[in-house]
Design a protein around this nucleic acid. Sequence first.
RNA 1: CGGGGUGUAGUAUACCGGUAGUACGCACGAUUCGGGUUCGUGUAGACCGGGUUCGAUUCCCGGCACCCCGACCA
Length: 417
Amino acid sequence: MRQSQLFTKTRKSAPKDEVAKNAQLLIRGGFIHKEMAGVYSYLPLGLRVLKNIENIIREEMNGIGGQEILMTALQDSEIWKTTGRWSDDVVDNWFKTKLTEDSELGLAHSHEEPLVRIMRGQVSSYRDFPRAVYQIQTKFRRELRAKSGILRGREFIMKDMYSFVRTQEELDEFHEKAAEAYMRIFARAGLGERTFRTFAAGGSFSKFSDEFQTLCDAGEDTLYLDRAKKLAVNREVYTDDVLSELRLKKSDMEEVKAIEVGNIFKLGTRFSQPLGLTYKDENGKDREVLMGCYGIGLGRLMGTIVEALSDEKGIVWPKEVAPFQAHLVAITGGNADVAAEADRMYELLREHNIEVLYDDRDIRAGEKFADAELIGIPVRLVISEKTLSQGGLEVSERSSGNATFVSDSDIVERLKN
RNA sequence: CGGGGUGUAGUAUACCGGUAGUACGCACGAUUCGGGUUCGUGUAGACCGGGUUCGAUUCCCGGCACCCCGACCA
């Protein structure tokens, strides 16, 4: 895309009401727009990143047998009353509204109940297992205090997967498969070496759960981490009993701050029992289905990448989530030959399906470089009189700043891998 | 939800009981052209409601919004 056509602009300063680094950089770069506290719109660059994250998650979920659906954001209160979760005393972050005076609707904060109702009509035999269903959809939560930019919002996009199995062994097995898929997702999102599976509280669902925590000083969570074993324990369940159960030694544990980028639970029959989700076993006897659930907040993951990987100049996107693969910067100095050569290079890259942001704007080099660093595309290509006289362009890596010269006959090959 | 704070051009800010100045941005002109160049001209603003006062953007009250700390976070 030609940057001269991009409707968003970068800014030198962040709005004063944003303190979180992720929001400051994403707003300065033109990735997102704040509508109100905890509610952000995604602009072209931000949406590209979000879609890339979505695709990674989708591939990994499909890879473990997930089937994608899309449920509604408006929810029927009746089904939630059956499990006792309609009450504000049980779930206090509902946004609720009314259809008529005595007909209430909820804005989705989660989807266990409605999905179980869907599955009730689809799963009826022991032959129908296992099943895993997921969606990537907007959730609403009435957070009393939104904070930390896009890390904790009132409206956000979440991938939530639910598994349906017959036995505890199957539940454990799928749980492990999901955990492995989660680690692959975070690795592809560039957070692999700093994200740890973490033993945590299970909330109202179960006794314990597994969180995926990315080490970051901006995080809200405190963990105790055994780096060698790549295992962490959330402070909320950090007891001697838990340590011995996990065979961890207190002396090996390091206290760290982290952001929860994912959370997976074994639900058991918590929802299938009250909602009557059963199947007939081999003997024709009714059995309750066991469930698990597996969540990732896409915006939070995006914000975490910014928090964890950016530097003093701006954002540093990992390759797989970057809005573009390369940022072509034309330094023409008013030289029409350089501009024509840059145009030609842009077309060449496009012909080879390389997604490139082409800075064809009529502004000075310094501003272009500063913007390129702020936006954080992994590879920057500079074309100028200087590089042209050598028959190529300068290729530099955003993360390291290392620059090399590449002739234009080699550039496509260089970007393809 | 408890506590604290802040609301002034698109953004960041200044001053002031006598209705606002600067920088960035934006527009135009000149200059410059591999690190946000320089100069000129122009553009654009007091959250809402009430009170005090001759007069309120300024002081007081209420509302709303936003930020921070805490609590909460299927």
